[in-house]
Each structure stands twice: as C-alpha cells, then as structure tokens.
C-alpha cells in the first residue's frame, strides 16, 4: 500500500514538474515581451503598486491602475473584493473574455502577485505577471507614460470565488494542531519568524504576539527571486523549497504578515512549480492575535502587551 502511494506521489510530482516547465511561459511575461506587445489590443496591462503617486507620474504605456487597498479588497469586511465589484472593476479596465492580462507592480510585484491571486480566485483566465515587475522595467530604462487613458469597457464575466485557493483561520489552526496534513510556509524574515520582532522595520506592530504558526518552515519570499527581481528558474526554485521540505507531496499554505508577500511565494509554488497551494491572507495579523491558538516563539518574546 505504502509503495503504491509513493509511486503515485512520484508520478504526480513528475506530471506537475512537466506541467510547470510549460507553465512558466504561460504565467510570466518578460519585460521584452511586454514592450513588444504593448500595442496588442488583447493585452491589458494593470499596475498594482503599494506606493501612491507612482503610477500617475509614470507607468507602462497603456496600463491602468488598481489600488490594492480599495479596488482589490473589501476594507470593511477585511475580505477580498466582492464578485460584483471585481467584475465592474475589470470591465472598466477594459478586460474582456479574450483578454490577456499582464499584472505588474512595485516592491518586487508583491501586490501584483496579490492581484494575481485574486484574479485566480475568481477564475479569470490568461493572467500573467511581468517578471521582475516595475523595478526591472525601470532598471532597463523602458518607456513610461504619465497620461492615464480610460480604456473602452470590457465584457469579462466573473464567476464565484474558488475558495480552494484561500486558507482561512480554521484551516491553519488544523494544520498547526496536526489535525490535517498540510505544509505551512512562512515567508517573512527570519527575525519575524523567530519572534525577535513583531513586524518588519518601519511597519506598525499589529499583532499582540510574535513568532510563527507551529510546524511552519521559514523560506523568506526573496529566496524565490534572482538579483534582478525575476523569479529563479523552475529547477532552482524546486530545490530552494525542497531543501526546507516543501516538495508538493502535500498541500501547502503560505502566509506572511498581511498576505501580500506570501502571494508572491504562492505564485512561485502554485503557478511555477504546479503545487497545490492556498494563500492565507489573514496571515500573522490575524493568527498572531487569534484567541486560543498555539504559536511557536523561538526568541522568548511571546507577548507584546505590557
């Protein structure tokens, strides 16, 4: 029985890796490709950045701007954007059924990857990430436009959200308590993971406890990218995660502080490596504050209150 399971797992892995090799080209576009295809009316470029005022002063020509904290979330419910609002947003951005959407953004595509995750949740097809993001586009001195144009409305249809891509608190607690066989990947910095700090430098400390979810392994998001901000080649990525025991043999949950950097790793693991991955967007700001759930703190500074 065990042998059969191993065999099956290996076969799945082989299939997944084969699929992934084809997938890298399907889910990523290079800056070069994008510049050559800017005039293709079927290509819709969308910037999702975190720093305000950046899109307006210069963006990939023809791109539209999504503000992640108003357009892609429901701030009152602390939830992802509703189906109706997302459909309205996409149509006003000129996205149609046959469009190819290219997402890019600042800070290494964190929020663009968050966008890609929301697009995936709602089952939008042909969504790609600009490899290297805004940083690489600028570093290569490619053209920027300062005038935003309102595109003609699109006709895309948005279906119900596929909750299988999203982890909620009970899923994570079950994993922490070993009630489900799930691999947890904490993509924050080592200092956050160990509980030495509550939040990265300059960011508000929003959780009352420091540390990580029991059983999680720490693979900081940046280990997935090369020096120029592009994703590492698929084979290298597979090794990076396999070294920490993340090999796709069981479902994975990624998390960080608020769910945006972990979207970046979610993208690498699910889209490039083809693993089964859920993103936990509640992340440490929810888990670290939740009542009656266990944490692991290696640094001995568990409680932030005085």
């Amino acid at each position: 029985m065990k042998r059969i399971r191993t065999l099956l797992a290996t076969a799945t892995l082989l299939l997944a890796s084969h699929g992934a090799l084809a997938a890298a080209a399907d889910v990523l576009v290079s800056t070069d490709w994008l510049e050559k295809n800017l005039n293709d009316p079927k290509v819709r470029v969308i910037e999702v950045s975190v720093n305000p005022g950046q899109f307006e002063r210069g963006h990939v020509p023809g791109a539209v701007n999504f503000a992640w904290h108003t357009d892609l979330v429901d701030p009152v419910r602390r939830d992802i954007v509703s189906r109706e609002n997302f459909e309205k947003l996409l149509r006003s951005a000129g996205v149609s059924q046959d469009s190819t959407v290219v997402l890019y953004g600042d800070t290494n595509n964190w929020f663009a990857a968050w966008g890609a995750w929301v697009f995936d949740l709602y089952g939008i097809k042909n969504v790609k990430l600009l490899d290297g993001g805004r940083k690489k586009w600028e570093a290569e001195s490619r053209p920027l436009a300062a005038v935003a144009k309102q595109p003609a409305a699109g006709n895309v249809k948005v279906g119900a959200a596929d909750t299988r891509l999203r982890a909620r608190l009970p899923d994570v607690v079950a994993a922490a308590e070993k009630k489900s066989d799930v691999a947890l990947v904490d993509i924050r910095s080592a200092d956050e993971f160990q509980g030495k700090v509550f939040a990265p430098a300059g960011i508000q400390e929003l959780s009352i406890r420091a540390g990580h979810i029991p059983g999680a392994v720490n693979v900081p998001w940046a280990e997935a990218v090369a020096a120029d901000g592009t994703f590492k080649p698929v084979d290298e990525l597979r090794k990076v995660y396999a070294a920490k025991g993340i090999d796709g043999s069981k479902p994975i949950i990624t998390y960080c502080r608020i769910g945006e950097r972990s979207s970046h790793t979610w993208f690498a693991l699910s889209k490039l490596l083809g693993y089964e991955v859920r993103n936990y967007d509640g992340s440490w700001t929810e888990y670290g504050n939740a009542v009656g759930v266990p944490i692991t703190n290696l640094a001995g500074t568990v409680w932030g209150g005085k």
Binding site: G53, E56, R57, V147, A148, K149, Q150
Partner: peptide, 15 residues
C-alpha cells in the same frame, strides 16, 4: 486630467 481622468470617482489626485 492625466493623473486622475475621472474627478468624480471619490479619489483624490496623488499627493
């Protein structure tokens, strides 16, 4: 007009 084509959107021009 370039930064924020629709002034009625409820957003403010950046900065």
């Amino acid at each position: 007009g370039a930064f924020l084509p629709d002034p009625a959107s409820g957003r403010l021009p950046p900065g």
